[in-house]
Design a binder for these strands. Structure first.
Length: 628
RNA sequence: GGACCGGUAGCUCAGCUGGAUAGAGCAGCUGCCUUCUAAGCAGCAGGCCAUUGGUUCGAAUCCAAUCCGGUUCACCA
């Protein structure tokens, strides 16, 4: 049993026997004792004072004496300072804990509980390569899946590929126009990058076509627009003079005007025609689409393999975008949805503090949310997961709130199990990354850069000169990716984070490589000698005890990380553990310890530290090297 | 305008289900490599925890208001 729970139930029991008062063990507040006081864990007495009608000092003394007398296996000493009862746990408790767990590679992991959870993450678009934001997403998704596994869940990792729509047609059209038959083979370009290049070319052409029309419109000449668009333009133009001085509003209106103009360029009309052809299944369009997508997938596979992302099941939007239509009918029958005069179908969420939301257009086609609900049902039918976690950026918070609400109102199975793991954007010091402006940090480039820095640093230190080429390459990958993953995972997912490409990601301090280094240097000790599994009775030095106390927290950390859906809890813990262990292992000798008994104890500490660090780093998706 | 999220050291972040004197790393400054890996260890310095008020024996943590930053409120996905 975890030490905190053990203390709580002991305190609860002794309070009952002393004062005939029943207290829930979980209601008793236990903190770690601050280093400046003597003791391991502390009972906060203030909360108990009222119900027991005692002064904190008197209560602390009575309770402390009773605990030590009644439970000598657990407690050996106590002291009371102000309202705090500081307890020293018996050495035996810690030693038995160490001896019982040091060699258990499963330590901290929860046994099978027979519940199934689906984690959907990555969700790439097939019109451009992965970028820094995708990396945060992939690392979070992979880690959340591992966190659930460690807590005894069965996990299905899925990915929905956004492989259809206007954005794909943009790349296709640009390739047709400007590509001259270029392929990844003929150009030597990774497929996803090649397709992404044509997306950029499209945007450039679009910009070029927009500019002259926009100029005319701003000058008041509105020609060649549908009456609807022309009316809108008139309206916006009319608003502009009234907004003198309101920069924000003016910019908004300009944006609206630009959007309308953009949609009326010849090239956008071509794109829409292409999308229509795609939807009608036109053979040539489909062939081009399939070929370009296959280039992209080959590129993605390479990147996924490199960063260690994998999926049990990949869904393609082209297969699933028509799902959910029958759900609209069902929702109408159940009066969850309602129809407006123009034929469009809506749901009214004003009672839940949200707005009315459209679920089917007047032309009968379904919208994003409807497709997503259809996919949710589809996935449930296939895997019957109790929970479904969507790893998606926080700009979609509203969408997922609506998604869950609609699912609940439709009475869909596992609707309550829908969770949005929302994470903040990765920003540059200059602000948001924008693919249109070419300010995205490319995933492949970033990984290459990190691995290259790992190589430089390793060469400078010169500690692995006997490694062969493939061992070296593996080590550089381990360290470079370790630094990158740890950097992105150590921050609370819901917070935005800043990445400065000018400053390289650190390899010292609160970083992946530091933890990897701790693992490697400890492995070096264990290569020379292994614990013999003899129980220890020797008195624990503070530095030794600190490590054991830290190791004891691991199962609780795993559980907390699952409840909060927060890999950063594990990153922070692992760093603290590595730091505590490093202090211990630099100050005290292991192989040349004072006595044989001390050596055995410290070897067990090394073994358990290596196990827990290895396990927690695995959960973060980070490999640990035996040497570095 | 409504809803949601954030504001802690020069920088990047922990701590937030209320508890003792506010915690790391980076950057800066001191020491420590003939003995298990110095990607390390030991130390110094650095804080009106955005502001104001409230609840409480006790508030960075809970509540309210305000200020700043972000996201969103599409018949795009």
């Amino acid at each position: 049993m975890a030490v905190v729970q053990a203390i709580q139930s002991a305190v609860s029991k002794e309070i009952a026997s002393l004062f005939q008062v029943t207290l829930e063990p979980s209601a008793i507040q236990i903190n770690e004792t601050k280093p400046e006081f003597e003791g391991d864990y502390t009972v906060v007495l203030f909360a108990l004072v009222k119900s027991l009608r005692k002064s904190p000092e008197a209560l602390g003394k009575e309770l402390g004496e009773q605990l030590v007398a009644a439970q000598p296996g657990l407690f050996t000493k106590f002291n009371v300072i102000k309202g705090f009862l500081n307890l020293t746990l018996s050495e035996n408790y810690w030693l038995e804990f160490l001896h019982g767990n040091y060699n258990n590679p499963q330590y901290g992991r929860h046994p099978h509980r027979g519940e199934k959870v689906m984690v959907e993450y990555s969700s790439p678009n097939t019109n451009k390569p992965l970028h820094l934001g995708h990396l945060r997403n992939n690392f979070l998704g992979w880690s959340i899946a591992e966190i659930y596994k460690a807590n005894g869940y069965d996990v299905v990792k899925t990915c929905i590929v956004n492989d259809r729509g206007v954005h794909i047609c943009k790349s296709m059209l640009a390739w047709q126009k400007f590509g001259n038959g270029a392929t990844p083979q003929t150009t030597g370009t990774k497929g996803d990058h090649l397709v992404g290049d044509y997306y950029v070319k499209f945007e450039n052409e679009l910009k070029a076509q927009t500019a002259p029309i926009l100029e005319k419109v701003m000058a008041g000449t509105i020609e060649g627009f549908s009456t609807e668009d022309a009316d809108k333009l008139q309206l916006f133009l009319g608003k502009l003079p009234q907004l003198e001085g309101n920069k924000e509003k003016t910019a908004e209106i300009h944006e609206e005007i630009r959007d309308i103009v953009r949609n009326n360029t010849p090239i956008m009309k071509e794109v829409r025609e292409m999308l229509l052809k795609w939807e009608q299944g036109d053979a040539a369009t489909m062939a081009l689409w399939k070929e370009m997508n296959s280039w992209v997938y080959a590129g993605f596979d390479e990147t996924y393999k490199r960063i260690g992302s994998d999926f049990d099941k990949i869904y393609y939007e082209s297969d699933t975008y028509l799902l959910g239509k029958d759900l609209v009918e069902e929702g109408l029958k159940k009066d969850v949805f309602f129809q407006k005069e123009d034929g469009s179908v809506w749901i009214d969420l004003t009672a839940d503090g949200l707005d009315q939301k459209i679920v089917r257009r007047r032309d009968g086609t379904s919208v994003y949310i409807t497709q997503d609900i259809g996919l949710a049902v589809f996935k449930y039918n296939e895997y019957k997961c109790d929970e479904s976690i969507y790893v998606v950026g926080d700009e979609q918070n509203y969408h997922f709130k609506v998604l869950k609400l609609i699912a609940q109102k439709l009475g869909l199975p596992a609707a309550d199990g829908i969770f949005h793991l929302s994470y903040g954007m990765v920003e540059l010091p200059t602000g948001k990354m924008k693919s249109r402006e070419g300010t995205v940090v490319d995933a492949d480039d970033l990984v290459d850069g990190m691995v290259d820095i790992a190589r430089q640093k390793t060469e400078e230190l010169g500690k692995v000169k006997d490694f062969n080429e493939s061992e070296l390459a593996g080590l550089y990958d381990t360290i470079g990716l370790g630094a990158l993953k740890f950097f992105l995972l150590r921050v609370d997912p819901k917070k935005r984070m800043v990445f400065n490409p000018e400053e390289s990601i650190d390899f010292h301090g609160f970083t992946g490589p530091f933890i990897q280094f701790t693992y490697a240097r400890t492995s070096a000790i264990l290569r020379k000698e292994q614990p013999k599994n003899t129980p220890s009775t020797s008195a624990l030095l503070p530095l030794e005890k600190n490590v054991i106390i830290e190791l004891e927290k691991y199962p609780a950390v795993l559980e907390q990380a699952r409840i909060e859906m927060n890999p950063s809890a594990i990153a922070v813990y692992t760093y603290k553990l590595a730091q505590t262990f490093s202090t211990f292992v630099t100050a005290l000798r292991v192989l040349t310890a004072e006595t044989e008994e001390k050596k055995e104890l410290r070897l067990q500490l090394c073994q358990m530290a290596v196990n827990v660090i290895g396990s927690s780093m695995h959960i973060l998706g980070i490999r640990v090297p035996e040497r570095m």
